[in-house]
Nucleic acid binder design. Structure first.
Length: 259
RNA sequence: CGGUUUUACUUACUAA
């Protein structure tokens, strides 16, 4: 829908004696953001003010995330400034969202600056922050910094998290560093934070891109014994891999295994 | 502290 339609709905609800509150707007704003209609979501922010509702930290975080996902990171950062000016204190969600936005935009250094800003405000990095930064550095091809961040997370006791591990496993396997990637998976098993199907998919995808279907298919057989059920990503990855090396017959066999 | 809203990791294809 659009904002005009929304206004009609809200008017209808109000005519029944029920007024929308901040939650109502937050849900709507999230809805518009999910549809990629961030501009319309921003209009709702203005409208909240005009009906004397005070946007809260969730309102701003939702919009900041929408702007980041819409590749408008500078605007997102400006909104951080706006919320502070209006007396709404940013929280860990705010910073993690922005840090991810800047990482995904290829501005990892700015993401690190934001983390400094957050820490200055008394917000310390959590597992989400670390997975975000590990991922950011990996995407940049900077495995050294990615590993440093990972080690720092471990020192703080925040390293034993599947997503943090997966981010680094992905970075390693995308660079073709499979021995290191598998070593890390062994570390996961030792630390009681076992791999999940995402871990397997990440490794298999890396192997498939290198044309190493032998090891990729072996991994498929190791998933179940490790308590991971192959999913649609697993099979699509293998089918892609076999097609890439022109083994269409093998690709078709995978399709049969799916049934 | 009755409930409801916000952040991180995986496949391919498609556009430039």
């Amino acid at each position: 829908g659009n904002v005009k339609e929304m206004k009609r709905l809200l008017a209808m609800v109000q005519s029944r004696g029920v007024s929308p509150n901040v939650f109502t707007y937050n849900i709507l704003i999230k809805g518009f953001c999910n549809e990629g209609k961030v501009q319309e979501a921003m209009i709702l922010l203005d409208e909240m003010v005009s009906v004397e509702l005070i946007p809260d930290v969730v309102t701003y975080n939702t919009l900041i995330n929408g702007l980041c996902k819409g590749h408008m990171v500078e605007e997102a950062k400006n909104l951080l400034g706006t919320m502070v000016r209006k007396g709404c204190m940013p929280d860990d969600f705010t910073y993690n969202t922005l840090i991810d936005g800047f990482c995904k935009a290829g501005m990892v250094q700015k993401a690190c600056d934001l983390l400094q800003d957050a820490m200055f405000k008394g917000i310390s990095p959590d597992q989400i922050t670390y997975s975000t930064l590990v991922n950011g550095f990996c995407e940049e091809g900077n495995l050294e910094r990615a590993t440093e961040v990972f080690d720092e997370a471990c020192k703080k006791g925040l390293g034993h998290n599947v997503i943090v591990y997966n981010a680094l496993v992905k970075g390693l396997s995308e660079q073709g560093l499979f021995p290191e990637a598998f070593e890390l998976v062994n570390k996961m098993l030792d630390s009681g934070c076992g791999p999940n199907i995402w871990t397997f998919n990440i490794l298999m995808s890396g192997l498939c891109k290198k044309g190493n279907l032998y090891h990729a298919e072996n991994l498929l057989n190791e998933a179940l014994p490790n308590g991971c059920t192959p999913d649609i990503f697993t099979f699509n990855t293998l089918i892609y891999g076999f097609c890439k090396i022109s083994k269409l017959d093998e690709a078709l066999k995978i399709i049969n295994k799916m049934r």
